[in-house]
């Protein structure tokens, strides 16, 4: 090979690769509107994107798996948790997580309510972008239980929780009830999609409750999703989901003791917490 041939090789391979890349770029532009739901990019979504940039979110979190690796991925967060929770969380992350438990915490960002609403609009838009099936399973922030059965290991007595105070957001207080009621809800229920323990997974419970109420198959007395969740806690057999896994002879396997052992306020908090899973 001569120098001249080597130079031709460098120029030709660069030119061909660049040409193919440009053609594919042009073609990609014709597909972006459909793949990214471009018509759903409202002024609120654009404003939310600016909030995302202004507060430097990407240098801790990832979105579409891109960013820093110090905080959870947020691609699908708006599909996993409801607006009420996300709003309360962004007002004060310290209400939901404790640095002494997880060794890291999101600092309070002092976002205005408008900024929070815009950011949620942006994250909701992002959660509907076609990411070709990524992530292959939901990326959750904290599942509470280290692993199914871990609490029974010697030396592991309780799930780490942050201490709660009366000023806490009801959702944060409800999470504490979920972990510390007797018997603890999370002993039988995970909040991980698809992970059914002794009881069914409670991931997406708010959306499923709404669908159930609307379906006409519901036999209990509740009128809305929150009412249904409350009823399931205090009277587990009021409506039985068909199947042999969780009930027999019209009686749910879930203990019917919570109406007694939990205060009304605690039940309200628990409902608020469970309603945040959509």
């Amino acid at each position: 090979m001569t120098t001249r041939q080597a130079r031709m090789f460098a120029i030709a391979s660069t030119a061909i690769a660049a040409l193919v890349f440009l053609i594919l770029t042009v073609h990609s532009h014709t597909r972006f509107p459909a793949l990214t739901n471009a018509e759903a990019i409202t002024p609120a979504v654009v404003a939310g994107k600016d909030v995302w940039h202004r507060y430097n979110c990407i240098n801790c979190h990832t979105l579409f798996g891109e960013g820093a690796y110090y905080a959870p991925d947020l691609t699908k967060i708006a599909q996993l948790r409801g607006d009420a929770y996300l709003t309360a969380y962004m007002r004060d992350p310290g209400q939901f997580y404790d640095e002494r438990v997880h060794r890291r915490l999101m600092p309070k960002q002092n976002l205005s309510d408008q900024e929070i609403a815009d950011l949620i609009a942006f994250l909701s838009w992002a959660s509907n972008v076609d990411t070709q099936g990524w992530p292959p399973r939901p990326i959750l922030v904290a599942t509470g239980l280290a692993a199914p059965g871990a609490a029974e290991q010697p030396g592991v007595t309780a799930v780490p929780t942050r201490p709660v105070s009366p000023e806490d957001d009801p959702i944060a207080a409800g999470e504490n009830v979920f972990k510390n009621a007797t018997p603890a809800c999370l002993a039988c229920h995970s909040t991980t999609p698809g992970v059914n323990l002794a009881g069914p997974s409670l991931a997406g419970i708010a959306s499923r409750a709404e669908e159930l109420i609307a379906s006409g198959e519901y036999t209990g007395e509740a009128e809305d999703a929150a009412g249904y969740i409350r009823e399931s806690i205090v009277a587990p057999s009021a409506h039985i989901i068909p199947g042999a896994m969780y009930s027999a002879g019209g009686m749910s396997f879930m203990p019917a003791t919570y109406a007694e052992s939990l205060s009304d306020e605690e039940i309200d908090q628990l409902v608020a917490y469970l309603m945040s899973f959509r």
Partner: peptide
């Protein structure tokens, strides 16, 4: 240089995984 660009230019595609592109 030729080898860098054959792989490098179209290799940009590995940043386009899972972000909403074709």
């Amino acid at each position: 240089v030729g080898l860098v660009f054959i792989a490098g230019i179209l290799g940009t595609a590995h940043h386009y995984y899972w972000v909403g592109v074709p």
